[in-house]
């Protein structure tokens, strides 16, 4: 591409290769500066608003916070030690693990079920929109609505009391045993649609021939699904699972809005716990340590994704 224009008609033996190399280097350096020019707004904004805070956050997690004076004292690992001994942290961690476990299985399972059922049906388009519809509500707005659905005198209880023929006043969002499952249901209502749409896109890419061949040979729906569709759909499933697991680690809006009156709100997830410790109790250094723990987990999952993706890519090729 970078062809020297005025190549002297010379004996190749005498050609000065280093001159061309130098020219090439200069060319590349010039492109680099042009490219950096184009990239600079992005680099500056991202570095200042995203990367610098992450580094600063890690730093704060190693300090002690003096009320009204600042992070003026090096604390070493003391914040992390506090984490380990705190029952609230273990509870928040346990609840986060529940969220992750649920996100690992349910969105993809329900989404896949609906997607496979819908595939090729006349109502596919309409149904697709219906299941996707909750997604267009903001998580906060959906949380507010579900808050009233779950209220002791709310819709859910009034429907239940229709069946039991006596008043039901379960406080779904007030009991330790029901609060997380209730929020999870609302969360799934909002997120399954996305999983379903992505899986439908994946299904559309599955070649028809093997399906038809299997069908002609009299295979049942389940057999076709299990032995033909599922293996071909694996890459899509992986993407969906990873997306929902990462989302599961960082659910905040739904819990924050729906559990606002639950006394143990701070222990409902690591994200909520971090927020409360920082902005409600001003334990800034301690909260930074929680954020770092969360960051390490999320990065590990991302890393796992890269490895898995790589393996699946090689498997399918």
């Amino acid at each position: 591409m970078t062809s020297p224009h005025n190549m002297p008609d010379a004996d190749l033996q005498q050609l000065d290769f280093s001159r061309y190399a130098e020219q090439e280097r200069r060319e590349r350096r010039r492109s680099m500066w042009t490219a950096l020019g184009f990239m600079s707004p992005a680099i500056i904004l991202v570095s200042f608003f995203l990367l610098y805070p992450v580094a600063y956050n890690v730093y704060i997690s190693f300090t002690r916070w003096r009320r009204f004076t600042g992070f003026d004292e090096w604390g070493g690992l003391s914040q992390y030690q506090r984490l380990l001994g705190n029952p609230n942290f273990s509870e928040a961690m346990a609840n986060t693990i529940i969220w992750v476990g649920v996100s690992l299985v349910l969105p993809v399972a329900i989404g896949l079920f609906i997607a496979v059922m819908l595939r090729g049906q006349k109502m596919e388009e309409t149904a697709k929109s219906i299941f996707f519809l909750p997604r267009v509500l903001a998580p906060t707005a959906a949380g507010v609505m579900w808050f009233y659905v779950y209220a002791p005198d709310g819709v859910l209880n009034s429907i239940l009391s229709f069946f039991t023929a006596e008043p039901v006043t379960i406080g779904w969002l007030y009991n330790e045993s029901t609060v997380t499952p209730s929020i999870i249901v609302a969360y799934l209502w909002q997120t399954v649609g996305l999983a379903m749409v992505l899986l439908l896109l994946g299904l559309a890419a599955v070649p028809k021939d093997p399906l038809e061949a299997a069908s002609v040979e009299g295979a049942t729906r389940w057999q076709i699904f299990r032995h033909v569709t599922l293996p071909l759909l694996l890459p899509t499933i992986l993407v969906v699972v990873i997306l929902s697991v990462l989302a599961g680690f960082t659910v905040f809006d739904h819990i924050w809005v729906m559990a606002r009156d639950f006394p143990g709100k701070r222990t409902l997830s690591l994200t909520v716990y971090m927020y409360v410790e920082a902005f409600d109790r001003s334990s800034w250094a301690y909260a930074s340590a929680i954020a770092v723990v969360l960051g390490v987990i999320v990065l590990s999952v991302t890393w796992l994704q890269v490895i898995l993706q790589d393996r699946i890519d090689r498997m399918t090729k």
Binding site: N88, E176, P263, G264, K265, R266, V276, D280, R281
Partner: peptide, 10 residues
């Protein structure tokens, strides 16, 4: 404050 009120509310 927060921790104790949460227990009392429970």
């Amino acid at each position: 404050q927060g921790d104790i009120v949460a227990e009392l509310s429970s």
